[in-house]
Amino acid sequence: MNRILAVARLHTVVWWNQFIWPWLILFISLSANYLIFLSIDEAAPGKTSTGGLSSIYIVSAIAAAIAISQIFPFALGMGVTRRTFYLATALVNVTQALLYGVLLYILNLIEGGTDGFGIGLHFFRVPYVDVSNGLLQIAVYAAPLLFINFVTMFVAILFVRFGTNGLFATVAATILIFGLLAALISWQNWWGDIWHWLSTQHQISLLVGWPALVAAVAALGGMAAIRRTNA
């Protein structure tokens, strides 16, 4: 465990990159949205929702890709095993997702308490993503982070292991599989059933359950793939 914590520092030693950038970009996004919605004060109520929150998920995905493409080769060079590196990276991911979830929830409360920063802005309390329970709200913010980080890491591992051809082959195979699946669904007229299934899914299942499940599968896949990867 000590070794895992030491290796985890590989991700946080440049704390500016790991922590400050995602939040700086989020706050710039928030500021831009604030100014925009301030200038259109006649905006109809309920129409002041924005997707600016997504920036933190995108920045997080970029950090996950860098973790594999750049920090992994350095770690191997420093005598760290693939297994320890992966466990340490997963630990950082999970910790970060929970921490970001809490911070986003605090901002969510601030937004609620100030009536949308005084202008009715819905930046953190985006419709559908806004749930009533505090712990659930943290999970709603955190699960998609886990999803995007572990899926990005898995793809990045394939890239490091198999190179450009491997990456494109994976993308091609994915498109082929989903394309055939879509064709099958259309042919069998299953779309209606699928939409019905989605609409009957609980909000929390779609926001937390399914993303977390896919994240877990991607995490296990990444672990299996990295064990034979040479940087």
């Binding site: 030491a6 290796v7 440049v14 990159n17 750049q70 350095f74």
Partner: peptide, 18 residues
């Protein structure tokens, strides 16, 4: 290869830990 953003002192810090 070294990760982007790593300075000389960061490499030394990590080497010290590992």
């Amino acid at each position: 290869k070294y990760p982007s953003g790593y300075k000389v002192k960061h490499v030394l810090t990590m080497a010290g830990r590992l």
